[in-house]
């Protein structure tokens, strides 16, 4: 018995997924190198994020919780770079903390590079507290006794001897907490940090969906969502960073996905029509 020849529509419906991956790969590479720049429309969460940092006064202290590693570099790195740039513009002091070793190394190296370009001094205007294995315990400890909980910075200096946190006893002495993370750590900050400290959030796009409730209730004051949010924020800061460069490829890959969804549905309809005709 001869095998029935597949129609075009059936072949489209059963297309080998490796062809789809190849098309997507070509699409991403093309638009990563193509010199197209499209301005973003600033979304309300990013505008709120920007406005909150604009309210900072010189010398205000900010805690940055940076928990991302190489896997989410494309989304979190532009966020952290833009945040540090903005904090330096406002002459705010900041300290960075992580919850695992790889995030500590990545965030420390990034902060060193970005602050060096702008003349910020380690220990005087910024510091890195290394990593803490348990965030809940660390926050509870920092609320009551920050130097006693953290003890040493990433370079081995006692926290109580760092000029940037001179006189700081507790997390309540901070003006703001910025959580840059691909994991859902912001509920922990919301639950346990002092209520006078404002919280801003920089999640990956996937994790942002669950943060809109906190934004709506005012528990977080602003949010930068993934690379797209980073592009909007860079636009507000009038800098061209990684967010702006990556968004091209992301934009057109979304278009590609939509085109193929429509093609797939079209093929499904045509296939059904053909089968009905043959009946």
């Amino acid at each position: 018995m001869q095998a029935r020849t597949q129609t075009l529509w059936q072949r489209m419906l059963g297309i080998d997924r490796r062809w789809l991956y190849l098309i997507l790969f070509v699409n991403i590479v093309t638009f990563l190198v193509a010199p197209i720049r499209m301005p973003a429309s600033i979304s309300p969460p990013v505008q709120k994020f920007y406005d909150e940092i604009e309210k900072l006064q010189p010398g205000d202290l900010v805690m940055i919780s940076s928990n991302w590693s190489a896997s989410t570099l494309a989304e979190n790195q532009p966020q952290l770079e833009a945040v540090i740039t903005h904090l330096m513009r406002k002459q705010a002091r900041f300290t960075i903390i992580s919850i695992e070793a790889q995030s500590r190394d990545i965030s420390y190296r990034l902060a060193e590079r970005v602050t060096k370009e702008k003349g910020y001094q380690y220990g005087e205007q910024w510091a890195h507290f290394g990593f803490v294995p348990n965030l809940t315990v660390a926050i509870k400890g920092m609320v009551t006794d920050l130097p006693g909980t953290i003890k040493q910075d990433v370079r081995g200096t006692e926290v109580s001897k760092l000029p940037v946190v001179q006189g700081v006893k507790s997390l309540s002495d901070y003006k703001m907490i910025i959580d840059v993370t691909p994991s859902g750590t912001v509920p922990i900050w919301i639950s346990y940090s002092p209520k006078n400290v404002r919280i801003l959030y920089c999640p990956t796009s996937v994790m942002a969906a669950e943060a809109y409730t906190y934004l709506d209730s005012g528990q977080i004051k602003g949010m930068i969502t993934g690379a797209k949010g980073a592009q909007e924020y860079e636009q507000l800061l009038t800098v061209v960073g990684l967010g702006t460069r990556f968004m091209n490829a992301i934009s057109f890959s979304h278009v590609l996905i939509i085109v193929f969804i429509l093609l797939g549905n079209f093929a499904m309809f045509m296939n059904r029509l053909q089968q009905r005709r043959e009946e």
């Binding site: 509870k140 609320v143 639950s191 346990y192 940090s193 002092p194 209520k195 006078n196």
Partner: peptide
């Protein structure tokens, strides 16, 4: 103040 106990 942070919410660490029922009393908070």
């Amino acid at each position: 103040m942070s919410y660490q106990h029922a009393q908070d």
